[in-house]
Amino acid sequence: MFDELLGRASLKDRIAELEDENERLRKRYEAESERRADAATARQDAEERLNRLEDRIAQLEGELERVEEAETGMAVRHREQLRGARLESVLDRLTTFRTGPEGALTVGVDRDGLSESTRGELESVLGDRVALVDDAAPCLCCVDDAGLLAVTLAPPVVPDQDATWRDRFALEREWFLPTGRHAVALVRTDLFALGVYEGADRVDYRGFESDVKGSHSKGGFSQARFERIRDGQIDDHLERCRDALAAYEPGGEAADMPLSLVGQRGIVDALVEESSLEPAATAAVDATGDPKPALEDAVRSFWTTELRVL
């Protein structure tokens, strides 16, 4: 009776209703957490299966390539990863090569392989070995009309070079070697490193690491919570990276400086998509360790050209 007189009865009823609603929300939250945990576990299992399948595909492709080479007798005569002084030496040899007028062909080959018109030109010199050019794509192909010299080169970024017949190969050193003032940024889920270079010499540097949780093997609510925390940490890290690269966006103070963005492919792509960056090049590189040595490894990997002698 006193509760009714003092208005406490309605308050108690309201409290009971809110407690019931709170219980329903708690159960709903726990169910959603379990669902997210199951989804995260399923995603991890799928990623592991995908990685195993990709490894198996790579293994089978290698076996297939060896079988095809055994059957056809076609294989590159020499393959080498070129960088630094060795790369400069090889480029010097190629750029000093001379023939008669329209005796040296240079052509850029994209990921889809040779165009039909260029294939016909190369087949007259290489015959069936033109298939080795498709295998090297994307690349630059240099062939002389006598078949004395036939190579492919895969620089950091293959230029859009139309088939060009001249008395020498149409090669530009900046396609292969760092020249002028430029920047290279390395981005991982937990790391950022940016170097400004004059040619091959680094003249400025900035780097940092972010606290991002690693993998998690437990199931249930703890895993769902772990996934949310980790995703948030990666988002925060990418925001720091965007801030560090803001000067290289259109209108920024360093917008005129060529920027190459390298690192984990998914992170690099996300950073480009979520900003107004227009990098001169992007590349997936495997660079581990602390920011400064990791950047050195990434730059060395990025400025590497694969040479194949056909």
Rank of each mutant, 00 (worst) to 15 (best):
R308N: 11
E80H: 01
E253Q: 06
A247T: 07
V151E: 07
F226S: 00
T72C: 10
H182D: 11
G219R: 01
A146D: 11
P293L: 07
A137I: 09
D297I: 13
L126Y: 11
L238D: 03
E61Y: 12
L149Q: 14
V125Q: 05
L177M: 06
E68M: 05
S33V: 15
P291H: 11
A46D: 08
D144L: 02
L105C: 11
E34W: 04
Q161K: 15
R66D: 09
R308L: 03
A283I: 00
T106K: 01
D144V: 01
E249Q: 14
V125S: 03
E253N: 09
S222Y: 02
E48Q: 12
E4A: 10
T95P: 03
L191V: 08
H182P: 14
T118H: 06
R119E: 13
L259D: 01
L295I: 08
F176V: 02
R228G: 08
L94N: 02
G195P: 05
E19N: 09
E273Q: 06
G73K: 01
R168K: 09
A183M: 06
R93D: 10
V133F: 07
I15N: 15
P258I: 06
A280S: 15
T95I: 14
L122P: 02
V196N: 04
P155W: 00
D3P: 04
V133C: 04
K218V: 02
G289M: 13
P291M: 13
A131F: 00
V90Q: 13
R35W: 04
D167S: 12
L132E: 15
R230G: 07
L6I: 10
V67R: 02
V133Q: 03
E102T: 00
G289P: 04
T106P: 13
W175L: 07
D190M: 02
S301H: 03
D167G: 14
L25A: 12
P178V: 13
L171P: 11
R173G: 03
L307I: 05
D112M: 07
P293Y: 02
A37H: 01
G100I: 08
A247H: 03
T95M: 14
K213A: 14
R166Q: 14
F221S: 11
L140T: 01
G289T: 07
E71G: 03
D162T: 09
V107Y: 02
E88Q: 10
G180L: 06
R24A: 14
H182T: 13
F192I: 05
A104K: 14
E19P: 04
T189H: 06
D162W: 08
L132R: 05
V90D: 12
R300W: 08
T164V: 01
S276H: 12
C142E: 01
I234H: 06
R228T: 09
T305C: 04
T41N: 13
Q44K: 07
S33E: 13
R242S: 08
R129N: 09
L105A: 08
V133L: 04
P101W: 06
R173Q: 04
R43L: 15
R43N: 10
Q44F: 15
I15G: 02
R119W: 12
K218S: 05
A40Y: 13
D231I: 08
V262W: 09
L114T: 00
R202K: 14
A163F: 13
G219Q: 02
Q233I: 03
T106L: 03
